[in-house]
Design a protein around this nucleic acid. Structure first.
Lengths: 237, 237
DNA sequence: GGATCAAACCAATCGTTCATTGGTTTGATT
DNA sequence: AATCAAACCAATGAACGATTGGTTTGATCC
């Protein structure tokens, strides 16, 4: 119990002690993959504090934007999920890979165009870093993730909320279903080198603030992806 | 049972008899407020037919777009609901008219392209009718509505669920906010004649199955809208 | 008196279970 | 060949209980 603890350990107030403890849990990577924190009751028992104290500490962390809470669900690290994801999950079931690719082919060149017109020097530097990570990635899985991050960054830099939502929609559908494995097969060492070169061209066009060129480079890149996906589906449908 | 029915009442085949009966149920207002039809098993018993016959009739009605079905849920009159509206309402607040217009300029030409590649003769006929209605509309309000219907029809004919969702998102945002009045001002008798001519060009390109031309015509049309909107905002911001 | 805690209750959510419903196959009947 | 009846599959929804954050109350300890 708190009251039995020696005086010299009680310099800092009770809420601060709990707050720092939880802050440490959040900042360190001690959480499950979904970012879920222990329940308030569990934290209280663990930290030998009352639930009210734990809640006050969580209030602070929530105000700082480090966690978010939802009644009946739990407490999670990071920011609350975007409502776009729910919509994506709902329509993901009746969208096939080819039509998702078709939609990308419509939207992403336009995003690259906008991106070229609005990117700052910092933005371009960030894109270069992401392309580098995609290039250096060890496994095919890892390359896939960095590639996704690159495309997402371009969409974000484009700076149009509606277009970003549309992109997120497609991206969520693309990530969360059963044809991951097909794309996986479509990514061989040769294609990866090809993709890297195409990424370079896209970023160069963006760096030159040449919107149409960026759109074209993106379109070619996606067409390559499209072709490879189709081939791998024909091989083993 | 069917087999006990007198010969002279059996002129029409069994599936047609069931189809007409169900069609009547749907077209009359005999359904609950949610548009739910009786279950297939119930209909089969009611119409003294087998479930397979009922299903064939429902297949026809579904192909005609009069009903939609969902496994585990039921059969309903009309078109399947679109969950996009909620998301649109959520993000509508932080989207300004110009960026919505920008998003249209990215997406709708692509939709026109797809539409040109997939439209049937019936589709084109429907588009012509809508353009005519837009032309003949009396008030500026009415013209606005028919114009929206035309653009929506093109998006639907394009036949890509994700792109349709993206379009619906923009459309909902466009409809449901405070700058309706600005667009209203931007629609004068002169501009209306201009818009009609542009609609014609779009539909002609679609009818000729010329995707790029349709995309171009749509892009020009939207740029005109864009310019007029900008002007009317400069006049009275 | 202020701070803390324990307990109890409310409300939202999730997992489970079970009935319902469309989707599909099979074999019998006419 | 067409139709039907039956059985099964898969997805959905309603109902229930357990869990979790949100809130209140009264006791306890400085």
């Amino acid at each position: 119990m708190l009251h039995n603890r020696p005086r010299d350990l009680q310099e800092t107030s009770e809420p601060n002690r709990v707050l720092q403890a939880i802050r440490q849990i959040v900042s360190e990577g001690l959480l499950p993959s979904d970012g879920r924190l222990p329940t308030e009751r569990h934290l209280a028992a663990e930290l030998e504090a009352g639930r009210a104290s734990v809640r006050r500490a969580l209030d602070t962390l929530e105000a700082e934007g480090l966690i978010w809470r939802k009644q009946g669900k739990g407490t999670f690290a990071g920011q609350p999920p975007d409502p776009t994801e729910e919509l994506a999950a709902q329509i993901a079931s009746d969208v096939d890979p080819l039509s998702a690719m078709e939609a990308r082919l419509c939207i992403e060149p336009a995003l690259a165009d906008l991106c070229a017109r609005r990117a700052t020097a910092d933005d371009v530097a960030r894109l270069r870093k992401l392309a580098e990570r995609t290039h250096d990635a060890e496994g095919s899985d890892s390359a896939e993730l960095w590639d996704g991050a690159l495309h997402r960054a371009i969409a974000r830099i484009a700076g149009n909320r509606l277009m970003l939502t549309a992109f997120t929609l497609i991206d969520e559908v693309r990530m969360g279903d059963d044809w991951q494995e097909k794309r996986h097969r479509a990514r061989t060492p040769e294609t990866r080198a090809f993709y890297d070169a195409q990424h370079q061209k896209i970023i160069e066009a963006i760096d030159a603030r040449n919107g149409p060129a960026a759109a074209n480079a993106m379109r070619k890149h996606l067409e390559t992806l499209f072709d490879n996906l189709r081939k791998s589906m024909e091989d083993r449908p």
